[in-house]
């Protein structure tokens, strides 16, 4: 599966469009991580645990999107966009969407 966030796959020609595919996941962190983040909120610095968690979740959202594209018979997703939103206290939604296409 080729993933890009440009209109096309550079160097290749799109032969078929399948429409929008999307993948999303809502994740919350566990209490231990939350506690550490609370401490970090006092002294500042990077929240490594959160960074990893969000990165993992983003990968999951991307994979879900790619699976959808596969079901459609596509071999690439172009023009991918990401979005993050805090839906509830302590939980975040990671969302990815793009256009499923077939390239030569």
């Amino acid at each position: 599966m080729i993933l890009t966030n440009v209109n096309s796959v550079p160097g290749k020609k799109i032969v078929e469009h399948f429409g929008i595919v999307q993948g999303s996941t809502v994740r919350a962190k566990h209490v231990g991580r939350d506690f550490m983040a609370g401490l970090k909120n006092l002294i500042g610095g990077e929240l490594k645990g959160y960074t990893e968690l969000l990165q993992e979740s983003r990968e999951e959202a991307t994979n879900r999107m790619a699976e959808q594209a596969e079901q459609m018979g596509a071999n690439a997703v172009v023009n991918i966009r990401y979005a993050t939103s805090s839906v509830a206290q302590g939980a975040a939604e990671l969302f990815a969407y793009g256009t499923a296409v077939r390239v030569e």
């Binding site: 080729i2 993933l3 890009t4 966030n5 440009v6 796959v9 550079p10 160097g11 290749k12 983040a37 970090k40 909120n41 006092l42 002294i43 500042g44 610095g45 990077e46 929240l47 959160y50 960074t51 969000l54 990165q55 983003r58 991307t62 991918i80 990401y82």
Partner: peptide, 17 residues
């Protein structure tokens, strides 16, 4: 072009008191 891939990078930075 040989290949094109999606690359991401992220960081969560915390505020201090």
């Amino acid at each position: 072009v040989k290949e094109s891939v999606l690359v991401t990078g992220s960081a969560v930075i915390s505020i201090d008191y």
